[in-house]
Design a binder for these strands. Structure first.
Lengths: 84, 84
DNA sequence: GAGAATTTGTACGTATGTATG
DNA sequence: ACATACATACGTACAAATTCT
């Protein structure tokens, strides 16, 4: 799904929202891999940096966990930071 | 102070460390502005993206606070995230 | 073990937008 | 109007670790 370039919402937030909704709806389940950066670039029509920011945002929000050189996966308890 | 390109430590971490040490040593005090992105680029000989990452890291660590379109400043209680 | 492909990490350069002074 | 400063976005390149053939 391409982003909407007329929507003033930053593209990386649009991409993040699309993934977040897939997690919330259950089409992406805990421990499932989310699309790789390259796939996000192709699927959404954005630059890699934009895709990376989207994933970074989801990571900060606790939706996903990234394993370097492995991939990024849906967290066991998505949406929870795990912090104190 | 230029970064050390033979040091395997990522450049953005080297820049962040340099700023962090200035805060810890007291040469940068709470509410002082830290150098702008352009100044970090000039001072350390790195790209803007690298300077931005350094600042982002310090922000995550609680050393600085960024006020959009204002600048980035040393936190009131540097090194504390303010979280629970 | 060798080699290619994949995936994330780091880094540089550039451009435009938005808000402030 | 102009300069400053951060935010977003695109493109490119190479490194490092893992995975697959």
């Amino acid at each position: 799904m391409q982003v909407d370039r007329f929507d003033p919402t930053p593209l990386y937030q649009q991409v993040a929202r699309a993934i977040r909704e897939q997690i919330q709806s259950g089409s992406l389940k805990p421990r499932d891999p989310i699309p790789s950066e390259s796939e996000l670039v192709a699927d959404h029509g954005v630059a890699r940096e934009t895709a990376r920011r989207a994933v970074a945002l989801l990571r900060e929000e606790g939706w996903v966990v990234t394993l370097p050189q492995r991939g990024t996966f849906v967290a066991d308890r998505p949406g929870r930071t795990g912090g104190s």
